[in-house]
Each structure stands twice: as structure tokens, then as C-alpha cells.
Simulated scan of single mutants.
Amino acid sequence: MNSNKPVPEPEIIPDFFHDPKSKKRYERGRLLGKSGFAKCFELIDSATKKIYAGKIVNKKQQLPPKHKLMDMTSHEILIHLPLDHKHVVECHNYFEDGNYYAIVLELCKGGTLGELIKTRQYITEDEAHYFMNQLLRELVLKIGDFGLATEIDIDGKRKNKVCGTPNYMAPEILWGEEHGYEVDIWSMGCILYTLLVGHPPFETQSVKNTYSKIKTNEFYVPSRIGPLAGALIIKMLQAVPSSRPNVHQCLTVPSGPSPQQLLRDLDQQLFELYTSKPHKKVPILMDEAEDLAAIPMVWVSKWVNYSDKYGFFGYQLSDDTIGVIFNDLTKLLLHVDGKAIQYVERDGI
């Protein structure tokens, strides 16, 4: 079956961009990412060789009638350019030519949460707890895309402007109601869900269906998600804005097991390991009972705690057995021969 629709030609991005005001020349590097309206490339200053991130917006692209590209780009620049904060990606410059708008940004080499999810599909609950703390406390992560943001000029003032990315947009925005900071808690709930599940809670094949699911609050939390994380997601994604927790309440939700708990669990494992194999015990005569050398002893010779960063606690025993305790309390044991690996469920099976 033949189609009469013209096949769109692939967009050819120029190798160099010229800023007519500063006379700077930027060489286009590798593609860093793309969105519905823009593509982000490395931009290399030809004079200094310093590498930036360049958000490139094609002026000739076709957008829905309600979206005016020039207004959207100007609005983003007006919000982003004056910001000076260590947890906001720095906006260095912007310019345009006949075909493109270009926003020159600080290059963050650590990658993005989106890239992490694409690589890993989803992360552990303790890793998600770590990243949520960064976002809510503004400790390490940087915010960098203000393309669909809005500005609150008076604290407490309610807005009625549609803003935000479709998959993370709160229902009151879609209903055209006035809204405030509660929409950010909703968006953070969507981010938490995405980190743990691998996709946004209301994601569908079309924006229309996504909006419909958001309005009806139609989502579910997979059974593999722990009760604490699942309960927090449900609270953050309440349809009624006033029912959602504030930032402080989100931060006070407990995380997974502490290092002390992991050590106690390790101690219990060692005890069970020792007592479950009586045929391997060295026979002890009563007259030798006071000789410590006659008692087989196993202890932790090395350990490393990555429970917050990567979701596991690793250790090596004095008999060269290596073990890993994951934050969901499942375990992996590498036996002394280096060939046999044993997986242990939460219940010890």
C-alpha cells in the first residue's frame, strides 16, 4: 500500500554555530540528548576549546498551534539566564541565527537521572531514597531544563498557567485550576515512581491518554516495591492537592536497613552458617575446651558499605568467603573455591 504523505527529510544540523553578538564560534560535538522541541549537543568554543552543552532549537519545526516557539524559548531564557545557584545548571549565553535558537549551558559530565534509568531500567529503593534526598534538599544534583517552567513572583501566589512535562503534570494543571507548590510534590512522586519502576506512572502511547489517566488518577504500584516506598508514592500522587505531603514529610519517611542493621544481619548469618554444618566442626575434647585454638572461628576481615550509594553491603570473611547483602535483604555468597555462587532469599532459602 502506497502512501501519498511526503517523507520528511532528515534534519541536518550544521557543524558550526556563530554568535553574531560576541563573534564566538562553536563547533558542534556529540549529541547529549533530545526532547520534543530541542536537541542538546556538546558545543566547543573554537577559541578556548572549552566544552559547553548547547540546547539547539530548530526555528522551522512544526509545533501544535498552542505552542509558539519564539515565546517558549524566550520564556525559558528569561527564567534561566538570571539564575545563579550551585544546584542550577549555569546558563552562559544565548543567540540565534536564521535557522536556530542556541542556549549555551554548563556541561555536567555526571550524566542525568534519565540516562541512569535507560541504562539500568530501574534502581533500588535505597538508591531512589538517595536521589530523592538530593532533589528535595538540593545537595548534589543540578536542575537544568526550564523549557516548560513558570515563575512565582509572590510567595504563596497561585498560578493557572499550563506548565510542566506531560508525564509529570499534576491533575489540577490539566483541569485549569489555580495551583501552587503541591504540583511539585506530585511531580516528585512521578519521579520516585519512575526511578523504582522504570517508567512514569501515567505513561501511555499518546499524550491524550496520559492526560486522561492523570485526571482519573489511574496508576498502580507493582508488588515488588516495598511498603514504605509504595505508601509514599501513593501519598505524593493524591488527586486532592491538600492531601499530599509537604517536603519535610517526604524527607522524614524512613529508608531501608541501616549499616548497623546490616551488621546485625551479617552476624546472624555467620551464626547460622556455623551452626548449620555440624559435620564440618572440629571435634572438641573436654580437656581441650579451654584452648581457643581448638575452636573454629570465622570473622569479618574486610567490609564495604555501599548501601546508600549502590544498594548493597559487601564483606569478606576470614576463611576468604565473600558475601553481599542487598538492601532488600537478599544475599549472594561466593564460596572459597571461587567457583560456587549461592543466592539466598530474604527468608534464608
Results as ranks from 00 to 15, higher is better:
residue 15 D to Q: 11
residue 219 F to I: 02
residue 302 K to L: 10
residue 67 H to Y: 10
residue 217 N to Y: 00
residue 55 K to Y: 04
residue 249 Q to L: 03
residue 155 D to C: 05
residue 147 G to H: 04
residue 170 A to N: 07
residue 189 G to K: 02
residue 85 H to P: 06
residue 15 D to N: 12
residue 133 N to Q: 09
residue 200 P to Y: 03
residue 253 V to M: 05
residue 301 S to F: 05
residue 232 L to D: 03
residue 192 L to K: 01
residue 56 I to H: 00
residue 61 Q to W: 00
residue 335 H to T: 15
residue 110 G to L: 14
residue 197 V to R: 07
residue 198 G to P: 07
residue 226 G to S: 11
residue 50 K to S: 11
residue 219 F to D: 08
residue 82 P to C: 06
residue 278 P to E: 13
residue 255 S to R: 14
residue 200 P to A: 13
residue 133 N to V: 01
residue 333 L to K: 08
residue 30 R to Y: 05
residue 202 F to G: 02
residue 4 N to M: 12
residue 344 V to F: 10
residue 105 L to Q: 10
residue 47 A to V: 09
residue 307 S to N: 14
residue 262 L to Q: 04
residue 98 G to W: 00
residue 36 G to L: 09
residue 149 A to T: 10
residue 207 V to M: 14
residue 277 K to D: 13
residue 333 L to Y: 12
residue 131 F to V: 05
residue 3 S to A: 07
residue 87 H to A: 04
residue 240 V to M: 07
residue 9 E to P: 00
residue 14 P to F: 02
residue 85 H to C: 11
residue 76 E to A: 06
residue 199 H to F: 11
residue 233 I to Q: 04
residue 273 L to F: 02
residue 158 R to C: 05
residue 286 M to P: 03
residue 9 E to Y: 04
residue 326 F to P: 01
residue 221 V to Y: 08
residue 131 F to C: 02
residue 78 L to G: 03
residue 337 D to S: 07
residue 231 A to D: 15
residue 286 M to Q: 09
residue 44 I to Q: 08
residue 89 V to H: 05
residue 4 N to G: 14
residue 46 S to R: 10
residue 41 F to Q: 01
